[in-house]
Nucleic acid binder design. Structure first.
Lengths: 205, 205
DNA sequence: TGTACAATCCCCTAAAAACAGGATTTTATT
DNA sequence: AATAAAATCCTGTTTTTAGGGGATTGTACA
């Protein structure tokens, strides 16, 4: 049986690279590519790939979101996340949204083929480096914050003071202060500076 | 005359992609690739490419630094910066360090060939999107900060208070305060939160 | 040898954030 | 209906920042 592969990435060079890497793989059929979420979903209405290689950073919707959508409509398709970054947060997010694998863009041909094979087999695959990161970061918590906290966090990062945030959200300044305290505690940050730095690096903002 | 091309990038998929895109270009000779700064410099001791395609994000030294080094030792080599990001700060930095061009990783084959040709011609090249960004951001200043300010900024982002920074740098707290004020002014930030957010996004931290 | 700029230091005041302890009311979820 | 979690509010105190105004020393550059 041939494995039908489709790729979603907004970089020509990556698309070309992967095509070149996979072209001579046995039992693989290159179905083409999409460069954004919209044209990917359009493609899927008429075609059925077995595996989608999905970039996490897309121009319109994020790859994470797209992954969720695809899985909801076509649960049989195996999705392998692609990214330049071996950040825990990315890996977790896409795997939580139904992906079956995660491969870094500096993966070798062998790793890529391995990933495809493993996922076709019904198993999950993490590229070596990704697996290392996950292992290393076991226990290093990614804070779970609430809607309201996220809202406050975002306004803090925009430079608003507690007072201004209170006015904007029609709540008391003491409430804002409480949210702020909780944010500091959840991120284990000593002050606003660290809070914003960590939140930025963990893609909360 | 054939144009000898060398590429420095730490992503196999990108290397493959570019090779695939350039393979059938007329008058181009693919010399190979390096995946980090060290092996790039080693290669240059024995080989003389005309053009180096240089990724900005490298694992060891940053592409910006490497660009500077290459230009210092081999001023004749034309360097084209490669990046996923069309951020003003990147474009400016690499162009200021001797690069002759800047191409995004989602550039088409034509753009890439155009860039190579233009640079071989002795001219500067910015990819369409990069040029747009630069144009759009004319006047939107990227602050110029001093060594000491950068040092203080970094310590602020790590959560140190003025007092702690003063102790660490063996200077008075009032000096730290002054640096802090200057940072806020240069970034046009109202408070620490915005300062850190802007500094992070502009890659100062 | 000016001049600009970086780096250092100082005073004062007001505003904001951090820290410590609460409590009540909604809103989900089982 | 009970429980948990989220969101709201409160009274304090202390520490830290932000904003305003300075000044001095050294270095680099033209």
């Amino acid at each position: 049986m041939t494995t039908r592969i489709f790729i979603v990435d907004d970089h020509y060079m990556i698309i070309e690279g992967i095509r070149s890497l996979l072209q001579h793989g046995k039992g693989l059929e290159w179905m083409g590519h999409a460069m954004n979420a919209t044209s990917c979903m359009a493609f899927l209405q008429t075609h059925q790939p077995h595996i989608i290689l999905l970039d996490i950073n897309l121009p319109d919707v994020s790859g994470i979101e797209l992954c969720k959508e695809i899985k909801a409509k076509y649960p049989k398709i195996g999705i392998i996340g692609l990214s330049s970054y071996n950040q825990q947060s990315y890996i977790n997010k896409i795997m939580d949204n139904g992906a079956s694998g995660y491969v870094l863009k500096n993966a070798t041909k062998e790793e890529l083929l391995d990933a495809i094979e493993t996922v076709m087999d019904g198993q999950k695959y993490l590229s070596e480096e990704a697996a290392l990161i996950v292992k290393k970061n076991v226990g290093s918590k990614i804070p779970i914050i609430t809607r309201r906290e996220k809202e406050v966090l975002s306004l803090i990062s925009e430079g608003l003071t507690n007072n201004q945030i209170a006015t904007k959200l029609f709540i008391s300044i003491t409430t804002v202060d409480t949210h702020r305290k909780n944010l500091l505690a959840k991120f284990e940050a000593k002050n606003t500076a660290t809070l914003i730095r960590m939140a930025t690096h963990l893609e909360f903002i």
